[in-house]
């Protein structure tokens, strides 16, 4: 707790800042978030700019690491947890599944990469097809990244490799689907 780089700026804590970032990525307006926090734009914009400089000057990466963890806990923020994006019932279901079912998470991660390779905005594609916002997706990604770290820490490389392969396989499947939609890939006529 002694790192002064983690001290609040104008009373805006790193948890506040990370939560606002996550919520904004889920489409919640800055205005609503700041109102719930009881601050005005001028205060927030200074704090946000200074949080970025704190990350820049921090040689230990502590600020950015803690930011990432808080980003994943945005839904537990005492003052801002009530602000949720409008999602369909299906979207909420998918989000729950994303949190608990790693196969589903890896599948969508692979699909998102494939989407970018075929000219889609991957974040928008996930929103259109699964009703999950970018902010929510990234928050869940923090969770699975922690699980992955733990597996690596326990030298469970077989498991780590399993998930890498699974994601790649799903990415390839979605790539095939996207290719079919646009009438194939440039090398399709070439046969071995």
């Amino acid at each position: 707790m002694s790192n002064p780089l983690l001290d609040p700026i104008h009373g805006v804590s790193l948890y506040d800042y990370a939560t606002i970032s996550a919520k904004m990525a889920s489409g919640i307006s800055q205005e609503d978030l700041l109102k719930a926090l009881g601050i005005e734009n001028a205060v927030y914009e200074e704090a946000a700019a200074l949080w970025v400089t704190r990350m820049q000057e921090d040689q230990t990466f502590e600020v950015i690491t803690v930011f990432g963890q808080y980003f994943g806990e945005a839904d537990n923020h005492p003052k801002l947890s009530g602000l949720k994006p409008q999602t369909s019932a299906e979207g909420s279901q998918n989000l729950e599944k994303l949190k608990t079912d790693r196969h589903f998470y890896e599948e969508l991660s692979g699909a998102r990469i494939a989407a970018y390779e075929y000219g889609y905005d991957g974040a928008q594609w996930i929103l259109d097809n699964y009703g999950i916002t970018l902010g929510d997706f990234q928050a869940v990604a923090v969770h699975w990244s922690n699980v992955n770290q733990a597996e690596m820490g326990a030298d469970n490389y077989e498991k780590v490799q399993y998930w890498v392969n699974y994601q790649q396989q799903k990415q390839a499947e979605y790539a095939q689907k996207f290719a079919a939609e646009q009438g194939g890939n440039i090398g399709d006529d070439v046969e071995f």
């Binding site: 889609y120 790539a175 890939n185």
Partner: peptide
């Protein structure tokens, strides 16, 4: 950027 990403995707498909 979307177009560039798609072009790079095709290049990589080769």
């Amino acid at each position: 950027h979307r177009m560039k990403s798609a072009v790079l995707g095709q290049v990589d498909s080769i």
